[in-house]
Amino acid sequence: MTISSYSERPAARTETADGLSVPWSRPSARRKGVSARMVSAVTILLLLAAWALSARLQLVSPVFLPSPVAVWNKFIVVIKDGFVDATLLQHVVASLGRVFAALVAAILVGVPVGLAIGISTVGRGIFDPLLEFLRPIPPLAYLPLVIIWFGIGEPSKILVIAIAMLAPVALSTASGVRGVSRERVNAARSLGATRAQVVRHVVLPSALPSILTGLRIALGAGWSTLVAAELVAATRGLGFMIQSAAQFLVTDVVIMGILVIAAIAFVLEFAIRRIERALVPWAGRE
């Protein structure tokens, strides 16, 4: 879904340009362009209002549903004074650190595995079933096994996230490799490139756009397993913060934590799209 919305963007731009160049079509183009965003904004505002109202009328006990203002105030307090022995920033840094360590691990393993799947029949035979097996298993299911095998230290938390990231990275790499232009490979071979040189200088750069898309999906997947990973004897992290808060029924911290996790996911998605555009400026221009 994210991929399609990415490719839709230029079309939307053309539409606006058309609307501006043809005066009489301008109003309709305007209305069309703005309305989706308007509807989203109104929806969010209505939800906020409903939330505020039901909190104000105490339809639900504040223990279960604190008001938006209370959540916001808690946000400020946790930034300043922290919650369960760490400031919000420290929780965020702990979580981001784990997710990025897992991302590095997933790249180190997933890209070569994806290459093997895309390049060789043997590689596909070995890794395809393993990935298909791993992919649908929810993190909470393999969490106990990871603890039994690797203990409750930091490596286990990173591993849980990395496992969730592995399939997207490897499968995107493989699909990028399969999409490599036959003519480019032949061009390199006819210039005297060895098999290894073809992989290094043609296959990898060709697959880069697809690999980056895989990283974007992997970051999303990894970020969403954060809470599961931080079930394991964590002392810091957003997931840990939410769970601790839940145990003491500090609902405002729980809600605040969820919103922070969502906001960071949004920022990560945005950042990696910027990186994609910077690293593969040729994508979609051939």
Binding site: S181, E183, R184, N186, A187, P205, R285, E286
Partner: peptide, 10 residues
């Protein structure tokens, strides 16, 4: 020299 230029866009 191939029908489609087969250059490396990167």
């Amino acid at each position: 020299v191939f029908q489609n230029d087969a250059l490396f866009p990167w």
